[in-house]
């Protein structure tokens, strides 16, 4: 009797899964109580160190998920505006560029994008924010840090003490540029400085384009020395538009999209509870990690 009951439950479960498989589409995920067809605001979260690769685990914000969410926001007819919730100390320049380009596409599709800064939206986090139509920050938010950094580690002395010696056979003089086994040469330093300078120019251009009419290019350049500032200071200097929290930014997105009444909110890249828990365990160890990643800023 018990066997038949358990087997019956297993068979019913399987039939249920089959019905679900026949009807499922990915956009069903996380829809919850959303009323299909009614206008909505898509929320995209950028939380953690920005990386072109990697996922949501361990306090990193992988751009694949973020870009996919922005693409979905652009394609879905019910989503009329996007709120970008940023809580990131920065990360890879390429990652910020990729997300910035996707934000441009959402805006080109006629959908306003509003940035809401959480604890930190510095460096790459600000690069992304600068791509949005408007920026909301809390007075104590840490932002700014417009600049580029690359850091090289030299363990030559340590290796010598340990009796470890590296033999390098290379096809060109700069092939082992940045090697941790020797001092950097003046020529190599110049090449890396040019590289950092080029990415810095791209960062400045993005901020100047995104904040056009709100802050003068020469003012951006004066502030773009890597300094961090509070949300309040950033508003005074024109890097942020308005002081307000997540809900103020949500309300502004609703206004810009001309949505009447209370908007529906769709979280487009919400991590499941277990992912959030796992991320929390390792997130604290990644604070300020951006300074260690080569070509991060």
């Amino acid at each position: 009797m018990k066997q038949k009951l358990v087997t019956g439950i297993v068979i019913i479960f399987c039939l249920g899964v089959l019905v679900l498989a026949a009807r499922w589409t990915p956009s069903d995920a996380g829809k919850g109580k959303i009323k299909v067809g009614q206008p909505a605001i898509g929320v995209v979260k950028v939380e953690g160190v920005l990386m072109s690769s990697g996922g949501t685990y361990g306090g990193t914000a992988g751009t694949a998920d973020i870009m996919q969410a922005l693409q979905e926001a652009r394609k879905r007819e019910d989503i009329k505006a996007v709120l970008l919730r940023i809580d990131s100390p920065g990360g890879s320049a390429v990652a910020a560029q990729e997300v910035g380009e996707e934000i441009d596409r959402v805006r080109a599709a006629g959908k306003p994008v509003v940035a809401s800064m959480g604890d930190v939206a510095a460096s790459g986090g600000y690069w992304i924010a600068a791509s949005c139509d408007e920026i909301y920050a809390n007075p104590a938010t840490t932002t700014g840090s417009i600049g580029v950094i690359t850091e090289l580690l030299n363990v030559q002395g340590l290796f010598e003490k340990l009796g470890i010696r590296s033999e390098v056979i290379k096809s060109g003089p700069y092939k082992d540029m940045g090697s941790m086994n020797r001092e950097i040469t003046p020529e190599e330093r110049q090449i890396l400085e040019d590289l950092v300078g080029d990415v810095y120019q791209q960062f400045l251009e993005q901020v100047e384009t995104g904040r056009k009419g709100k802050i003068k290019p020469e003012e951006v350049r004066a502030l773009a020395d890597g300094r961090v500032m509070t949300g309040k200071q950033a508003q005074k200097s024109g890097l942020v538009d308005t002081m307000g929290n997540y809900y103020d930014a949500l309300d502004r997105a609703r206004e810009l999209a001309h949505i009447e009444g209370e908007p529906q909110v769709v979280e487009l890249n919400s991590a499941d509870p277990l992912t959030r828990l796992l991320s929390r365990f390792s997130a604290s160890s990644l604070v300020n990690n951006n300074t260690r990643v080569p070509m991060a800023y």
Binding site: W24, P26, G30, D272, L274, T275
Partner: peptide
């Protein structure tokens, strides 16, 4: 996927 509990 349906319940957004991918990790589980």
């Amino acid at each position: 996927e349906v319940l957004s509990l991918q990790s589980l």
